[in-house]
């Protein structure tokens, strides 16, 4: 059952190619903007790259959150596809996972390209990929709560950002710390464990909360 659901969601994701292409385009575009606005920052490997990269990742995730439940909500099928699913928890979790495949995982794969463009040293790339691999699921998970609650708003973008960005802060802190440590050739096991723990907590809490938010949104319709 989980497999079939996963396959269906994955097909939907692939059909709507924009949901993968758009976040990547946004990320590359903002990388370009940074390179233009602050060429001295990205000219040579520097510590600032970790911060810039992570903030851009946060914004990319934030912008792609709105699409997480949007299609179902607009077509009025949200209730039957998620809330009334056999196991709503699993249905929502799969939706979040597939959203992560389209954004977080693609970002992880693109890191060897985008990282150096932003002035990340080559030695820091594996650590950065690990940090993103551990951290971006938490962004999708925590973000799903905000997405579930604001999907019914006609102009929910800024509220979504206000609700979700404070929750992203711990991921940002440990994520940048791993990148910095990797760049300096230091051990970052402790930070990686913390990041994994945050993702785990988000994994336990978020689907329930997102589901509760979706129930509210459906009633708002």
């Amino acid at each position: 059952m989980v497999g079939a659901l996963l396959l269906r969601e994955w097909k939907i994701l692939l059909r709507a190619r924009a949901s993968i292409v758009n976040p990547m385009a946004f990320l590359l575009l903002s990388t370009l903007l940074f390179a233009i606005a602050a060429p001295q920052l990205v000219a040579e490997p520097s510590q600032q790259a970790s911060g810039i990269l992570w903030v851009l990742v946060l914004f990319t995730q934030l912008l792609s959150l709105d699409a997480m439940f949007r299609r179902d909500y607009d077509s009025g099928t949200l209730e039957q596809s998620l809330i009334m699913a056999d196991v709503p928890f699993v249905a929502v979790l799969i939706r979040i996972f597939v959203q992560w495949l389209g954004t977080g995982l693609v970002i992880v794969i693109a890191t060897p390209v985008i990282g150096p463009l932003l002035g990340l040293s080559w030695s820091a790339v594996p650590g950065t990929m690990l940090a993103l691999l551990l951290g971006t699921p938490a962004l999708s998970l925590l973000g799903s709560i905000g997405a579930g609650i604001t999907v019914g708003f006609s102009r929910g973008g800024i509220i979504l950002a206000l609700l979700v960005l404070p929750l992203f802060l711990p991921v940002l802190i440990f994520g940048t710390d791993i990148v910095n440590a990797a760049g300096a050739g230091l051990n970052y096991t402790a930070q990686a464990y913390w990041l994994a723990l945050i993702t785990l907590v988000a994994l336990i809490v978020s689907p329930f909360a997102a589901l509760a938010g979706l129930r509210i949104s459906v009633e708002m319709q």
Binding site: I145, I149, L163, P166, L167, L169, P170, I173, F174, D177, W194, I198, V201, V205, A209, A212, G213, I216
Partner: peptide, 20 residues
């Protein structure tokens, strides 16, 4: 719902900021 989620997150945020 949002205040409950925020309250659960407060210790994590506080700890990570202290780490920072």
């Amino acid at each position: 719902l949002v205040s409950l989620v925020g309250t659960v997150n407060i210790p994590i945020i506080k700890y990570s900021v202290e780490w920072w």
